[in-house]
Amino acid sequence: MRVFVAGATGVIGRRLLPLLTAQGHEVIGLARSYGAAVEVEVLGAVAAEADALDSGALSHVVKDAAPDAVVHLLTALPAKFNPRRRSRDFAQTNRLRTEGTRNLLYAAEQAGAKRIITEGLACIYEPNTWVPAAEAAPLWRDPPRQFAPVVAALRSLEERTRQADGLVLRLGQLYGHGTIYGRHGSFVRQVQAAKMPIVGSGDGTFSFTHVGDAASAIAAALHSHVRGALNVVDDDPAPVREWLPILAELLQAPPPKHVPVALGRFSAGEWGVAFMTQLRGADNTLARRVLDWAPHYGSWRQGFAAELTHAAHP
Rank of each mutant, 00 (worst) to 15 (best):
R265H: 08
I12A: 05
K63D: 09
A306D: 12
R97K: 13
D283H: 08
E39W: 12
A57E: 03
A133W: 10
T179W: 00
P127C: 15
A215Q: 09
R97M: 04
V62I: 05
R86M: 14
L286S: 06
V150W: 11
A220T: 10
A113E: 10
V3E: 01
D234I: 02
P67C: 05
L77E: 05
N103P: 05
V226S: 00
D235V: 06
S87H: 10
R32E: 08
R227E: 10
G24P: 06
Q23S: 08
A113G: 07
T285P: 00
V273L: 02
S55E: 06
R14T: 11
P237I: 08
G112H: 13
D142Y: 15
L20W: 10
L154H: 13
R32W: 13
L58K: 04
G204L: 14
I180A: 10
T161N: 04
A22M: 09
V168C: 03
H223I: 08
W293A: 02
A282I: 04
H296M: 05
L244C: 04
P67I: 11
D292V: 08
G200Y: 05
P239V: 01
W140G: 14
A148H: 14
Q190I: 13
V188F: 13
F90G: 11
E158V: 15
T129A: 03
T98K: 09
G178Y: 01
E249R: 00
L279T: 13
G182S: 07
L291R: 02
M196P: 06
V11W: 02
S201P: 07
R241H: 01
Q110P: 10
E126D: 14
A306H: 10
R265L: 07
R95A: 09
T285V: 05
A50W: 11
G44I: 15
A91C: 07
E158C: 08
S201H: 07
I180D: 00
A48D: 04
G7V: 15
A91F: 08
V42P: 04
L174N: 09
K63R: 14
P78D: 07
F81N: 04
V232N: 01
T277Q: 02
L74S: 09
E158L: 12
W243E: 04
A137P: 14
R162V: 11
E249L: 07
V261G: 07
F187I: 03
D292F: 02
A306N: 06
I117G: 00
I12F: 03
R86W: 11
R155F: 14
N128P: 04
V11G: 00
T161P: 01
N128T: 13
V61Y: 02
P239A: 03
A253M: 07
G228L: 03
L167N: 03
G44E: 09
P83Q: 10
Q146H: 15
V61D: 01
R189C: 13
